[in-house]
């Protein structure tokens, strides 16, 4: 009797637990190695950086999508640029991460399981340098024959919108709008 009392709920727990995780796993996708690149092109200077440690989770059922981007993981060709990016502009000790939280529309959970190319819209709130702004961008989700899911998007961000001050002395070196490209290889969770 005592054993039954413990075993029965435990069995339920296992059954429920496993069924719930599989149900979710079919629809949720994640990556820890997403790529975000940005560049600023002016006649004076070209500034480029890459971050290959972008974390993202996408729930294809609800459309909810989130990103976390470690600012110090952006790598520049010039070490001093990277130092100034972190120290003077992004203040990455105070604001270590940029984040995005929103919805991805234009693709259903069923479509993600079939090969194809889908034009999508991403809309939500983008937080950079501690300042949150609404953001909307077009994107593409490509599902190839093997079932691999790739998502990409490109958009522009104005540093001033996020409270990033650029002194007059270097204003000509940095573009008014920074071009950002996102590309992700999602894996099923």
């Amino acid at each position: 009797m005592k054993i039954q009392n413990i075993l029965l709920p435990a069995a339920f727990l296992v059954a429920l637990g496993s069924s719930s995780t599989t149900a979710a796993a079919q629809d949720r996708y994640m990556t820890r190695t997403g790529h975000i690149a940005f560049h600023s092109a002016t006649s004076v200077e070209r500034i480029e950086a890459d971050n290959h440690k972008v974390t993202s989770v996408w729930d294809a059922t609800s459309g909810a999508i989130e990103f976390a981007v470690l600012i110090k993981a952006f790598e520049f060709e010039k070490a001093l640029m990277q130092e100034h990016f972190n120290e003077n502009y992004m203040e990455s000790n105070t604001f270590p991460k940029a984040a995005f939280k929103g919805k991805l529309t234009g693709i259903t959970a069923e479509q993600v399981k079939q090969p194809g190319r889908y034009d999508v819209i991403v809309e939500g709130e983008l937080t950079i340098h501690g300042v949150t702004k609404p953001m909307k961008s077009k994107g593409t989700v490509v599902v190839d024959a093997s079932g691999a899911v790739k998502a990409s998007s490109a958009f522009a961000v104005k540093p001033e919108d996020h409270g990033i001050k650029i002194p007059g002395m270097v204003r000509k070196n940095i573009a008014e709008e920074i071009q950002v490209q996102v590309s992700l290889d999602y894996q099923k969770m």
Partner: peptide
């Protein structure tokens, strides 16, 4: 989970981050 999807991933394992500047 729907409130905070990223929490599903847990804490990231990252290498040492050295003090700069």
């Amino acid at each position: 989970a729907q409130e905070d999807l990223l929490k599903l991933l847990g804490e990231e394992e990252s290498g040492p981050e050295y003090t700069s500047a």
